[in-house]
Design a protein around this nucleic acid. Sequence first.
DNA 1: TCATTATAGCGCTGT
DNA 2: GCTATAATGA
Length: 732
Amino acid sequence: MDITHLTDSLNTPQREAVCASPCHQLILAGAGSGKTRVLVHRIAYLIQVQGVAPNQIMAVTFTNKAAREMRERLQQLLGDVGGPNRFSGLWVGTFHGIAHRLLKMHWREAKLPENFQILDSDDQLRVIKRVYQALQIDEKRWPHRQAQYFINGSKDEGLRAQHIQDSHDPYTTTMKMIYSAYEEACQNSGLVDFAELLLRSHELWLSSPELLKHYQDRFVHLLVDEFQDTNSVQYAWLRVLAGNACWVTGVGDDDQSIYGWRGAKIENIQQFEKDFSNTAVTKLEQNYRSTNTILSAANAVIQNNNSRLGKQLWTEDGDGDPIDLYSAFNEQDEARYIAECIEQWQKEGNSLASSAVLYRSNAQSRVLEETFLREGIAYRIYGGQRFYERMEIKNALAYVRLVLNRHDDPAFERVINTPTRGIGEKSLEALRLTAREQGCSLFDAAAALLANNVLPARAANCIKAFLALLDELQGGIDSLGLAEQVEYVINASGLYEFHQKEKGERGQARIENLQELVNACRAFNAEDADRAPIAEFVDNAALGSGEQQADEYQDAVQMMTLHSAKGLEFPLVFIAGVEENLFPHKMSADSAEGLEEERRLCYVGITRAMKKLVLTHAESRRLYGSETYNPLSRFIREIPEKCIQEVRLKAVVTRPANVANVRKDNALKAAYSDEGDGEFKLGQRVAHAKFGEGVILQFEGRGPGARVNVAFTDAGSKWLMMQYAKLQAVER
DNA sequence: TCATTATAGCGCTGT
DNA sequence: GCTATAATGA
């Protein structure tokens, strides 16, 4: 058989991995070394050359994005070979998605109600808060977040509350108590959080040997992407499923392990070779993505980490452009510089979508966003406040969830008084109390209280009306299509009207989001014929796989955190806020492991860039309300000097830059051309009678009508008319 | 008793 | 900045 289409485009180590005879494989693939390509070609090879049936293969990823990409690339490779269903039965999905699928199919064995719902971390926190109330725990002494962290951390390690060692310290005792009550609350309401999906499906293997046997017999090849991100439960889950007769392929890069805080264990890579005998190890070190300069920087940075398996990326590509380093006065100036560079990039004939701005924390996106908006640069933000996490969307979905499962307490609490219908804290407290005493759901409690006639008339009427509404919703969605169902729920619940009455642009935005939700329903393709599409839609929303937004195809600058950039590549990459306390983040600075993880994150960021990398930092930054002055990130000093060129505005070069070549590139000409009037320059420190001292960021126009943008120390940044502002130059 | 409005406290990364 | 609580008004 002709297999050139599978091997043509591969280098020697890649080809060896793809064409290996059945065996356990560990592929250590550096950034940009063609990891996904190898994985996809390997699957195609198994099917087309080794005759493995598609339904004997499972491929697991971490993000929905990666799963989607793998599916698409498989389709490209195999699509025309054997008709549309050529690889039906092949399982491609995220750990969470596959675990969810298993639990849905085997809910009885997993001891879950058939219509169990997924809890996102927001919902989870709500449940925890309710547990605090029930147990009368002081949230001042034990912050809610701490309990959430404890619960998730325990689950990631495969530990139930009962497995937590009893000890005499109050911390463990309290946490164990909370964990235990939380488990009970979830079980009673049929709720499953993210970590629970994994833990539960692992327990499913252990408690149902015949079920496990079925899947062990079925899957002959197990392929796992981003292996360095697996946590203890995921690894245990894999090992059990693999059994003794399954070939496991792990693909990963220890240098890109950035989810330690979520329980990921790099050690799993080392453990792999011990647990699966005769593992063939392949290293992919040739990089096809970046210039030599970018790779040198990445290699130099990551070399400062101690615990590494050891890899050195190389490329046949030339040196390319140096890495630019821009020192901004503040975050406004930083954003302005980035916007200018992007405009220049676009003028040179590049698309906006070929550029990306990466940052350590989502809070940084706001200033960038405002600047892009002002400059008319289209942008698209990934992550941050996600669509399905918006309040109005969660409210709408809560109604849907209640229709599907009335015992879903978090959903019940969320909407019982949204829109306001006269059921306040007092009534709710009565419901909670009954639910707690009876060990039943809030819904049952409401019904019971009404039946017993123990509520004040007014509250009783309101609750009665709410329950009637639920009935009405349930009746109303029969025989409607998915989108119409959701539309109906939004209208009949009064949510639409509620948000319409909200003042300001906020309400308008929420209405638009709700409409967007209906659109998303319309575009949704249900896959599981056995389930109501609406139920599947809600689960999908909770698992975050509906992440596509409306403007997906618009040409726009891509903005995201460094974490969510993993696996992506862009010709032009900005990393903003390369400062101590921000990157590396101050929360990670006190531990060696924390710092090494930050460094790996930096490595991930650098290696996203194909042609050009720009690093920016701000000398002063307004963060969380107060002004901060952060020194340059240590990571910058770890990059060889020859790779970097410092870009500074002429106006503020008061001391010689310590890097040889200070460049006057095209992007900066725009800045030079508007140098302003006479004594005032960009970066000039000025004083204003009312606003105090500040720094000039930008000029617009000339003569008496000219305007100037000044970032004031106390008053924030303002646009002022030159002729009225009466600015005084301040000598530094 | 509930709804609305003003103020204090807290903040990383994400399935 | 946003959310959770406290104080105020209906």
